[in-house]
Simulated scan of single mutants.
Amino acid sequence: MRKFFAVLASAWLSSTIAVQADAFPSRPITIIVPYSAGGPTDIVGRLIADSMSDTLKTRVLIENMGGAGGTRGAGLVARAAPDGYTLLLHNIGHATSASLYRKLPYSPTGDFEAIGLITDVPMTIIGRQSLEANSFAEFVALLRAQSSKINFGHAGVGSAAHLCSLLLMASGGIQVTSIPYQGSSQSLRDIVAGQIDIGCDQTTNTMNQIRSGQVKAFAVTTFSRLGSMPDIPTAHEAGLKDFEITVWHGLYAPKGTSEAILLKMNTALRIALRDPRVVARFAELGTEPVTEARMSRDVHSAFVASEVGKWRTVIEAAGAFVD
Protein backbone atom coordinates (compact mmCIF):
# COMPACT_ATOMS: atom_id res chain seq x y z
CA MET A 1 0.00 0.00 0.00
CA ARG A 2 2.82 2.40 0.87
CA LYS A 3 4.48 1.62 -2.43
CA PHE A 4 1.21 2.34 -4.22
CA PHE A 5 0.85 5.75 -2.57
CA ALA A 6 4.52 6.55 -3.24
CA VAL A 7 4.05 5.79 -6.93
CA LEU A 8 0.82 7.80 -6.96
CA ALA A 9 2.51 10.79 -5.29
CA SER A 10 5.40 10.61 -7.74
CA ALA A 11 3.03 10.52 -10.70
CA TRP A 12 1.05 13.46 -9.29
CA LEU A 13 4.23 15.49 -8.77
CA SER A 14 5.46 14.74 -12.29
CA SER A 15 2.14 15.72 -13.82
CA THR A 16 2.03 18.91 -11.73
CA ILE A 17 5.52 19.92 -12.89
CA ALA A 18 4.56 19.16 -16.50
CA VAL A 19 1.42 21.29 -16.23
CA GLN A 20 3.40 24.16 -14.68
CA ALA A 21 5.99 23.97 -17.46
CA ASP A 22 3.28 23.91 -20.14
CA ALA A 23 1.68 27.00 -18.60
CA PHE A 24 5.02 28.81 -18.33
CA PRO A 25 5.29 31.68 -18.82
CA SER A 26 1.95 33.09 -17.74
CA ARG A 27 3.29 36.50 -16.69
CA PRO A 28 6.32 38.73 -17.43
CA ILE A 29 9.83 37.42 -16.79
CA THR A 30 12.44 39.63 -15.15
CA ILE A 31 16.11 39.32 -16.01
CA ILE A 32 18.33 40.91 -13.38
CA VAL A 33 21.42 42.60 -14.83
CA PRO A 34 23.71 43.22 -11.85
CA TYR A 35 25.23 46.38 -13.34
CA SER A 36 23.99 49.86 -14.20
CA ALA A 37 21.83 50.70 -17.20
CA GLY A 38 23.72 51.60 -20.35
CA GLY A 39 26.71 49.38 -19.62
CA PRO A 40 27.85 46.53 -21.90
CA THR A 41 26.14 43.73 -19.97
CA ASP A 42 22.94 45.76 -19.94
CA ILE A 43 23.16 46.18 -23.73
CA VAL A 44 23.57 42.42 -24.24
CA GLY A 45 20.65 41.75 -21.91
CA ARG A 46 18.26 44.11 -23.66
CA LEU A 47 19.10 42.70 -27.08
CA ILE A 48 18.27 39.12 -26.15
CA ALA A 49 15.30 40.10 -23.96
CA ASP A 50 13.53 41.72 -26.90
CA SER A 51 13.93 38.61 -29.04
CA MET A 52 13.03 36.19 -26.24
CA SER A 53 9.84 38.17 -25.59
CA ASP A 54 8.70 37.35 -29.14
CA THR A 55 9.40 33.63 -28.70
CA LEU A 56 7.90 33.26 -25.23
CA LYS A 57 4.86 35.44 -26.03
CA THR A 58 5.33 37.46 -22.86
CA ARG A 59 7.34 40.46 -21.81
CA VAL A 60 10.94 39.76 -20.78
CA LEU A 61 12.00 42.74 -18.70
CA ILE A 62 15.47 43.95 -17.73
CA GLU A 63 15.97 45.19 -14.19
CA ASN A 64 19.32 46.77 -13.34
CA MET A 65 20.63 46.12 -9.86
CA GLY A 66 24.23 47.32 -9.67
CA GLY A 67 26.57 47.31 -6.71
CA ALA A 68 29.17 45.12 -5.01
CA GLY A 69 30.79 44.05 -8.28
CA GLY A 70 27.64 42.35 -9.51
CA THR A 71 27.10 40.27 -6.36
CA ARG A 72 24.10 42.27 -5.12
CA GLY A 73 21.95 41.38 -8.11
CA ALA A 74 23.27 37.83 -8.30
CA GLY A 75 22.48 37.31 -4.61
CA LEU A 76 18.89 38.38 -5.17
CA VAL A 77 18.44 35.82 -7.95
CA ALA A 78 20.09 33.10 -5.84
CA ARG A 79 17.39 33.69 -3.22
CA ALA A 80 14.50 34.02 -5.70
CA ALA A 81 11.76 31.44 -6.17
CA PRO A 82 12.88 28.78 -8.68
CA ASP A 83 9.89 29.34 -10.93
CA GLY A 84 11.59 30.79 -14.02
CA TYR A 85 10.29 34.32 -13.53
CA THR A 86 13.45 35.81 -12.03
CA LEU A 87 16.65 35.19 -13.98
CA LEU A 88 20.20 36.50 -13.95
CA LEU A 89 22.27 37.71 -16.88
CA HIS A 90 25.87 37.97 -15.74
CA ASN A 91 29.31 38.20 -17.24
CA ILE A 92 32.75 36.87 -16.36
CA GLY A 93 32.34 38.50 -12.94
CA HIS A 94 29.98 35.68 -11.96
CA ALA A 95 32.94 33.28 -11.96
CA THR A 96 35.50 35.62 -10.42
CA SER A 97 33.25 36.57 -7.51
CA ALA A 98 33.90 33.10 -6.05
CA SER A 99 37.49 34.19 -5.32
CA LEU A 100 37.17 37.96 -4.95
CA TYR A 101 34.62 37.59 -2.15
CA ARG A 102 35.83 35.13 0.48
CA LYS A 103 32.55 35.57 2.38
CA LEU A 104 30.23 35.44 -0.62
CA PRO A 105 26.75 34.49 0.67
CA TYR A 106 25.99 32.27 -2.33
CA SER A 107 27.82 29.87 -4.62
CA PRO A 108 28.19 30.93 -8.29
CA THR A 109 28.18 27.25 -9.28
CA GLY A 110 26.00 25.70 -6.58
CA ASP A 111 23.11 28.16 -6.29
CA PHE A 112 22.24 28.63 -9.97
CA GLU A 113 21.06 26.63 -12.95
CA ALA A 114 22.89 27.44 -16.18
CA ILE A 115 20.55 28.29 -19.06
CA GLY A 116 23.13 29.04 -21.72
CA LEU A 117 26.11 31.13 -22.82
CA ILE A 118 25.38 34.18 -24.95
CA THR A 119 28.47 35.89 -26.31
CA ASP A 120 32.19 36.52 -25.79
CA VAL A 121 32.81 40.25 -25.95
CA PRO A 122 36.33 41.56 -26.67
CA MET A 123 37.65 44.45 -24.60
CA THR A 124 39.52 47.58 -25.61
CA ILE A 125 42.23 49.39 -23.67
CA ILE A 126 41.43 53.07 -23.99
CA GLY A 127 42.54 56.46 -22.70
CA ARG A 128 41.36 60.05 -22.59
CA GLN A 129 41.86 61.95 -25.83
CA SER A 130 44.56 64.20 -24.31
CA LEU A 131 46.66 61.32 -22.95
CA GLU A 132 50.34 61.71 -23.88
CA ALA A 133 50.55 58.46 -25.89
CA ASN A 134 49.56 57.55 -29.44
CA SER A 135 50.50 53.86 -29.64
CA PHE A 136 50.33 50.91 -27.31
CA ALA A 137 54.12 50.95 -26.84
CA GLU A 138 53.96 54.61 -25.84
CA PHE A 139 50.98 53.83 -23.61
CA VAL A 140 52.88 51.14 -21.68
CA ALA A 141 55.98 53.35 -21.44
CA LEU A 142 53.85 56.19 -20.04
CA LEU A 143 52.29 53.92 -17.44
CA ARG A 144 55.69 52.65 -16.34
CA ALA A 145 57.11 56.17 -16.10
CA GLN A 146 54.14 57.81 -14.40
CA SER A 147 52.32 54.91 -12.75
CA SER A 148 51.68 56.79 -9.51
CA LYS A 149 49.95 59.58 -11.44
CA ILE A 150 47.82 57.46 -13.79
CA ASN A 151 44.31 56.49 -12.72
CA PHE A 152 42.31 53.57 -14.11
CA GLY A 153 38.52 53.75 -14.05
CA HIS A 154 36.45 50.58 -13.80
CA ALA A 155 32.96 49.39 -12.90
CA GLY A 156 33.80 48.24 -9.38
CA VAL A 157 35.87 45.48 -7.85
CA GLY A 158 35.24 42.21 -9.64
CA SER A 159 33.92 43.84 -12.80
CA ALA A 160 35.35 42.87 -16.18
CA ALA A 161 37.18 46.21 -16.37
CA HIS A 162 38.72 45.61 -12.95
CA LEU A 163 39.92 42.16 -14.04
CA CYS A 164 41.44 43.71 -17.14
CA SER A 165 43.31 46.20 -14.95
CA LEU A 166 44.70 43.37 -12.80
CA LEU A 167 45.88 41.53 -15.90
CA LEU A 168 47.39 44.71 -17.37
CA MET A 169 49.32 45.48 -14.21
CA ALA A 170 50.53 41.90 -13.83
CA SER A 171 51.55 41.56 -17.48
CA GLY A 172 53.15 44.98 -17.78
CA GLY A 173 54.82 45.08 -14.38
CA ILE A 174 53.09 48.37 -13.57
CA GLN A 175 50.87 49.88 -10.89
CA VAL A 176 48.13 52.44 -11.44
CA THR A 177 45.57 54.05 -9.16
CA SER A 178 42.27 52.17 -9.28
CA ILE A 179 39.09 54.29 -9.43
CA PRO A 180 35.91 52.22 -8.93
CA TYR A 181 32.55 53.38 -10.27
CA GLN A 182 29.02 52.06 -9.93
CA GLY A 183 29.06 51.00 -13.58
CA SER A 184 30.94 51.05 -16.88
CA SER A 185 28.90 53.86 -18.38
CA GLN A 186 29.97 56.25 -15.60
CA SER A 187 33.68 55.44 -15.89
CA LEU A 188 33.57 55.73 -19.68
CA ARG A 189 31.81 59.09 -19.39
CA ASP A 190 34.65 60.41 -17.23
CA ILE A 191 37.32 59.12 -19.60
CA VAL A 192 35.56 60.95 -22.44
CA ALA A 193 35.40 64.07 -20.26
CA GLY A 194 39.10 63.77 -19.40
CA GLN A 195 38.39 63.36 -15.69
CA ILE A 196 40.27 60.05 -15.48
CA ASP A 197 43.11 58.71 -17.59
CA ILE A 198 42.52 55.18 -18.80
CA GLY A 199 40.16 52.23 -18.77
CA CYS A 200 39.48 48.84 -20.30
CA ASP A 201 35.96 48.14 -21.43
CA GLN A 202 33.95 45.90 -23.69
CA THR A 203 33.49 46.79 -27.35
CA THR A 204 29.74 46.87 -26.73
CA ASN A 205 30.42 49.98 -24.65
CA THR A 206 33.38 51.66 -26.38
CA MET A 207 32.82 51.20 -30.13
CA ASN A 208 30.98 54.48 -30.68
CA GLN A 209 33.42 56.54 -28.61
CA ILE A 210 36.41 55.02 -30.42
CA ARG A 211 34.94 55.59 -33.88
CA SER A 212 33.98 59.17 -33.06
CA GLY A 213 37.44 59.96 -31.69
CA GLN A 214 36.21 60.75 -28.19
CA VAL A 215 38.79 58.38 -26.67
CA LYS A 216 42.07 56.88 -27.79
CA ALA A 217 42.09 53.12 -28.39
CA PHE A 218 45.47 51.50 -27.74
CA ALA A 219 44.76 47.78 -28.01
CA VAL A 220 42.16 45.03 -28.08
CA THR A 221 42.35 42.17 -25.60
CA THR A 222 41.92 39.21 -27.98
CA PHE A 223 44.71 37.29 -29.69
CA SER A 224 43.40 38.35 -33.12
CA ARG A 225 42.51 41.81 -34.35
CA LEU A 226 38.82 42.60 -34.65
CA GLY A 227 37.22 42.77 -38.07
CA SER A 228 35.21 45.77 -36.89
CA MET A 229 38.36 47.68 -35.82
CA PRO A 230 41.25 46.18 -37.85
CA ASP A 231 43.62 49.10 -37.27
CA ILE A 232 43.78 48.58 -33.50
CA PRO A 233 46.53 46.09 -32.51
CA THR A 234 46.15 43.34 -29.97
CA ALA A 235 47.93 43.80 -26.65
CA HIS A 236 49.63 40.47 -27.36
CA GLU A 237 51.14 41.54 -30.68
CA ALA A 238 52.02 44.98 -29.32
CA GLY A 239 54.27 43.61 -26.61
CA LEU A 240 52.29 42.11 -23.71
CA LYS A 241 52.73 38.45 -24.57
CA ASP A 242 49.77 36.14 -23.90
CA PHE A 243 47.58 39.04 -22.76
CA GLU A 244 44.02 37.94 -23.44
CA ILE A 245 40.65 38.50 -21.81
CA THR A 246 37.15 38.37 -23.24
CA VAL A 247 33.95 39.00 -21.38
CA TRP A 248 31.57 36.11 -21.74
CA HIS A 249 27.93 36.42 -20.78
CA GLY A 250 25.50 33.77 -19.61
CA LEU A 251 21.90 33.42 -18.48
CA TYR A 252 20.98 31.72 -15.17
CA ALA A 253 17.99 30.66 -13.09
CA PRO A 254 17.83 29.96 -9.34
CA LYS A 255 18.85 26.47 -8.24
CA GLY A 256 15.91 24.07 -8.28
CA THR A 257 14.18 25.49 -11.36
CA SER A 258 12.50 22.63 -13.22
CA GLU A 259 14.25 21.04 -16.18
CA ALA A 260 11.21 21.70 -18.38
CA ILE A 261 11.36 25.45 -17.71
CA LEU A 262 15.13 25.52 -18.17
CA LEU A 263 14.75 23.76 -21.51
CA LYS A 264 12.09 26.23 -22.60
CA MET A 265 14.34 29.16 -21.66
CA ASN A 266 17.37 27.60 -23.36
CA THR A 267 15.32 27.15 -26.54
CA ALA A 268 14.18 30.79 -26.44
CA LEU A 269 17.77 31.90 -25.90
CA ARG A 270 19.01 29.82 -28.86
CA ILE A 271 16.36 31.40 -31.07
CA ALA A 272 17.40 34.87 -29.89
CA LEU A 273 21.04 34.16 -30.71
CA ARG A 274 20.04 33.23 -34.27
CA ASP A 275 17.78 36.27 -34.63
CA PRO A 276 19.19 38.34 -37.54
CA ARG A 277 18.49 41.54 -35.59
CA VAL A 278 20.56 40.33 -32.63
CA VAL A 279 23.37 38.99 -34.82
CA ALA A 280 23.56 42.26 -36.77
CA ARG A 281 23.58 44.40 -33.64
CA PHE A 282 26.23 42.21 -32.00
CA ALA A 283 28.38 42.63 -35.13
CA GLU A 284 28.05 46.41 -34.88
CA LEU A 285 29.32 46.15 -31.32
CA GLY A 286 32.31 43.99 -32.23
CA THR A 287 31.03 40.63 -31.04
CA GLU A 288 28.92 37.67 -32.11
CA PRO A 289 26.77 34.96 -30.51
CA VAL A 290 28.54 31.87 -29.17
CA THR A 291 28.64 28.88 -31.48
CA GLU A 292 25.82 26.34 -31.48
CA ALA A 293 28.07 23.84 -29.68
CA ARG A 294 28.46 26.26 -26.74
CA MET A 295 24.74 27.01 -26.32
CA SER A 296 23.90 23.90 -24.28
CA ARG A 297 23.28 23.99 -20.55
CA ASP A 298 25.92 21.34 -19.86
CA VAL A 299 28.63 23.26 -21.71
CA HIS A 300 27.66 26.44 -19.87
CA SER A 301 27.88 24.74 -16.46
CA ALA A 302 31.27 23.18 -17.19
CA PHE A 303 32.62 26.44 -18.58
CA VAL A 304 31.67 28.44 -15.48
CA ALA A 305 33.36 25.86 -13.24
CA SER A 306 36.55 26.08 -15.31
CA GLU A 307 36.52 29.90 -15.21
CA VAL A 308 36.16 29.87 -11.42
CA GLY A 309 39.38 27.84 -11.22
CA LYS A 310 41.25 29.92 -13.82
CA TRP A 311 40.59 33.27 -12.16
CA ARG A 312 41.12 31.99 -8.63
CA THR A 313 44.82 31.63 -9.51
CA VAL A 314 45.07 35.20 -10.85
CA ILE A 315 43.12 36.81 -8.01
CA GLU A 316 44.89 34.97 -5.22
CA ALA A 317 48.29 35.81 -6.73
CA ALA A 318 47.34 39.50 -6.83
CA GLY A 319 45.78 39.40 -3.36
CA ALA A 320 42.83 41.27 -4.88
CA PHE A 321 40.18 40.32 -2.35
CA VAL A 322 37.17 42.44 -1.53
CA ASP A 323 36.65 41.15 2.01
Rank of each mutant, 00 (worst) to 15 (best):
A6W: 13
V7R: 08
V7Y: 00
S10V: 13
S10A: 13
S15Y: 02
S15C: 13
T16V: 12
T16R: 09
I17H: 09
D22Q: 15
F24W: 13
S26E: 14
R27V: 06
A37N: 12
G45S: 13
I48M: 05
M52W: 02
A68F: 06
R72M: 10
A78M: 06
A80N: 09
A80H: 07
P82R: 09
L89A: 07
I92A: 08
H94F: 13
A98R: 01
L100V: 14
K103R: 14
P105H: 05
Y106N: 05
P108N: 10
F112W: 12
G116R: 02
P122R: 00
T124D: 04
R128V: 04
N134H: 09
F136Q: 01
F139N: 05
V140N: 04
R144L: 03
Q146A: 14
S148V: 09
N151V: 07
F152Y: 15
G156I: 02
S159H: 02
L163P: 01
S165K: 13
L168G: 00
A170N: 12
G173F: 07
I174W: 11
Q175C: 03
I179K: 12
P180G: 01
S187H: 13
D197W: 10
D197S: 14
I198N: 05
Q202P: 01
T203L: 14
T206L: 04
T206M: 12
N208V: 10
N208T: 15
R211W: 02
G213S: 08
T221A: 11
R225L: 09
L226I: 07
S228Q: 14
M229D: 10
M229I: 15
I232G: 02
P233Q: 07
A238F: 06
K241S: 03
W248P: 08
H249V: 06
L251H: 03
A253N: 02
A253Q: 03
G256I: 10
I261L: 03
K264W: 05
M265T: 09
N266H: 02
N266W: 08
T267L: 01
T267E: 12
L273I: 07
D275M: 04
V279Q: 09
V279H: 08
A280G: 12
F282A: 10
A283D: 13
E284R: 13
P289V: 08
T291A: 10
T291D: 10
R294H: 10
S296P: 00
S296Y: 01
R297K: 05
R297P: 01
D298E: 15
D298L: 10
A302K: 11
A302T: 11
V304K: 02
V308C: 07
G309R: 12
R312W: 04
A318Y: 01
A318S: 14
G319I: 06
